[in-house]
Structures are given as C-alpha cells and as structure tokens.
C-alpha cells in the first residue's frame, strides 16, 4: 500500500479545501444554521411534541446529513473533474497507485471534508439545543458510510461530465429532491399510505433514518434493511469506480 502517496492526496485536498474555506466549510454551516433557526427555532417552538421528541431534534439529523452529502459529493466531483479538465489526473496515472488506492484517496479526502462540515454543524446544533448523541459509534459509522457513497457518486459524475454544468445535474435533479422527499422535515407517519410506501423506496429515507436513530434513538425504517442497503451501495459503487479507473474511462487517452 502506497501510504505516503495516499497521505499526499489527502494533504493536497485538505490544502485545497482550506484555500477556499468560505465556500467549502463556512457556507454549509451558515445554511445549516438558517435551517435550524427557521425549522427548529421558529416553527419548532410552536410544535410541542413531534413523534415523542422536540421538532428541532427530529430535523437536525436530516439537516446534518444534507450538508454531509453535499460536502462529500462536491469534494470528489470538483476535485476529479478539475483534474480531468487540467489533465493533472495524469500525475496520478503515472505514479505508483493501484486503482483501489486512487479510489481510497478521493473517498478519504471527501469523507474528511464531510466530517469536518458535520463536526462544525454539530457545534452549531449544540447552540440550538438540537444535539443528542445516543449511539456515537453508529453515528460516526452512518455519517462516514453515507459520505463515502456520495464521494463515489461524485467520482462517477466527474468522470461522466463534459462540462461544469453537467457536474451539477445529479445534484440538482436527483440528490436534492430525493433528500427533501426522504423525510428530513416530516415523519412518514403523517403521509398518506401510498406516499409513505413510495418514500420507503427512496434510499435517502434509510440514510436519514440511520443517522436519526443513532442520534435520538427514533426510527421509522427497517434499520437492518437500511444497514444492508448502505453496505451494498458502498461495496457496489466501490467496485464500479475501481472498474472505471481500471478501464481508464475518460481519464486515459
């Protein structure tokens, strides 16, 4: 294993993230603070009891997940797309990295950025009294696994995209709608039966439910199914990305 090489990829990405910290770290924290103020503080204060917990505690895991997903996806997709665009990807192609190490480098960098954003949002949430951590180990697992999934989706989109506009397609038309419809701000027990059944087909419902159950101990999904789904998606996407790297799709000439 090329550990120094992997550390260098990580170091390079951390330096890139800190170079534009307002965009990469401050912006998601401001967005999360606004969500917490409006949905948790203003609206939530009018709701006495929401499925047995305060409304702000119910919505906080989803708000955190939204930021984690965006940070992770943006990290890997923008990094790899820019490397393709500038041909700096050739620096990695000529260096002694295995395809697994290339994957690990991009994913670890994205997860690190997502965890940094998640950590800052936890601090903000703590000021709003929204943070409960009943199962911290499961919390770290879910956040890291979900960040990994979106880091790998970011890699796939970065390989596919031919323009900066295309880089945003998945985020705009898939990630954002499915996240909002995955039960971040509401309980599926409030939905009509058909809508609740459709929501259960949305993987984002299991993502937010996993994080929520690890934080406040409240779950509306089949947790075991959610866990298996997350593991299968992680392994499946990792296999797909390694295959894409091995074939050199859009990166080798």
């Amino acid at each position: 294993m090329n550990w120094i090489g992997l550390y260098t990829i990580l170091r390079r990405e951390v330096e890139r993230t800190l170079h534009v910290a307002v965009q990469t770290l401050a912006a998601p924290v401001v967005s999360a603070a606004l969500y917490l103020f409006i949905f948790g503080g203003v609206l939530g204060s009018k709701i006495d009891d929401f499925v047995g917990v305060s409304y702000i505690s119910f919505v906080f895991p989803g708000i955190l997940m939204l930021s984690v997903i965006n940070a992770s996806f943006a990290s890997s997709s923008s990094s790899l797309y820019f490397m393709r665009f500038s041909r700096a990807i050739e620096e990695l192609l000529v260096a002694p990295f295995s395809y697994f190490e290339m994957l690990l480098g991009f994913v670890a960098s994205a997860v690190l950025r997502a965890l940094a954003v998640g950590g800052l949002i936890l601090v903000v949430g703590w000021f709003f009294g929204a943070v409960t951590l009943m199962h911290p180990i499961w919390f770290v697992f879910y956040v890291s696994a979900i960040a990994s999934i979106f880091a790998m989706l970011g890699i796939i989109v970065a390989l596919w995209a031919e323009s900066f506009e295309q880089l945003q397609v998945l985020n705009t038309f898939v990630i954002t709608p499915l996240t909002y419809l995955g039960g971040i701000f509401y309980s599926i027990t409030f939905l009509p039966e058909t809508a609740a059944a459709v929501t259960k087909l949305n993987p984002f419902f299991y993502f937010v439910d996993g994080i929520r159950s690890s934080m406040i101990g409240y779950s509306e999904a089949n947790s075991q199914f959610g866990l298996v789904l997350i593991i299968l998606l992680t392994v499946g996407l990792a296999t797909l990305v390694i295959t894409m790297f091995r074939r050199g799709w859009k990166v080798r000439v």
Binding site: I4, G5, T8, E15, M83, A88, E91, L92, P96, F97
Partner: peptide, 21 residues
C-alpha cells in the same frame, strides 16, 4: 503541461514526490 495551475512550483514537485512514496 498537465498540472493544477493553481499550485505553486514547490507544491507541484513536492506532491509528486509524495505520490511516489
């Protein structure tokens, strides 16, 4: 030139040394 044009001369050489372990 296949580099990140926003990196410094030193960073470009240093990162590559890191990639090579």
């Amino acid at each position: 030139f296949n580099v990140n044009i926003f990196n410094t001369a030193e960073q470009i050489i240093d990162y590559m040394g890191g990639y090579y372990g």
